[in-house]
């Protein structure tokens, strides 16, 4: 794959990833971001053994932009106003769920 094609693919994948996450969080709220983070971690686990343009485009750009750490903070801050336990559960579920999903993805390939 040429550098130009990789760059275009990188941009398209990053844009699609960011849009999907934004759409999920605006329609489903914190649950949408949670699902996206877990699904993205699983997919990156599956891709972990790949390299080259595919890893850069799908892994770094697409799945990197699809999942987020910064988005967790405003959402958990909002949940904390309702219940600190809910916010703690949300953050814990995100980290453990994403790590478990990445582990499953790693072991499947």
């Amino acid at each position: 794959m040429t550098v130009f094609a990789t760059a275009v693919g990188f941009g398209v994948a990053a844009a699609v990833g960011a849009l999907l996450r934004w759409r999920a969080s605006t329609t489903l709220g914190p649950g949408g971001t949670l699902l996206i983070n877990i699904a993205g971690a699983f997919a990156l686990g599956l891709l972990a053994s790949t390299s080259g343009a595919l890893a850069t485009i799908v892994g770094t750009a697409g799945l990197g932009a699809l999942t987020t750490v910064s988005g967790i903070f405003p959402e958990s801050a909002r949940l904390m106003r309702a219940s600190p336990l809910l916010a703690l559960g949300y953050v814990s579920l995100t980290i453990t769920g994403a790590t478990a999903a990445a582990t499953v993805g790693l072991r499947l390939v």
Binding site: R21, N37, V69, L106
Partner: peptide, 27 residues
């Protein structure tokens, strides 16, 4: 998502950070 601009928060910061890469690192 609360914020002045979805472009800045959901777009830029969301794509700048990565939970999947962190999860893979930990895994």
């Amino acid at each position: 998502v609360a914020g002045p601009s979805p472009g800045l928060t959901a777009g830029f910061c969301g794509a700048l950070t990565s939970m999947s890469a962190l999860a893979l690192q930990l895994a």
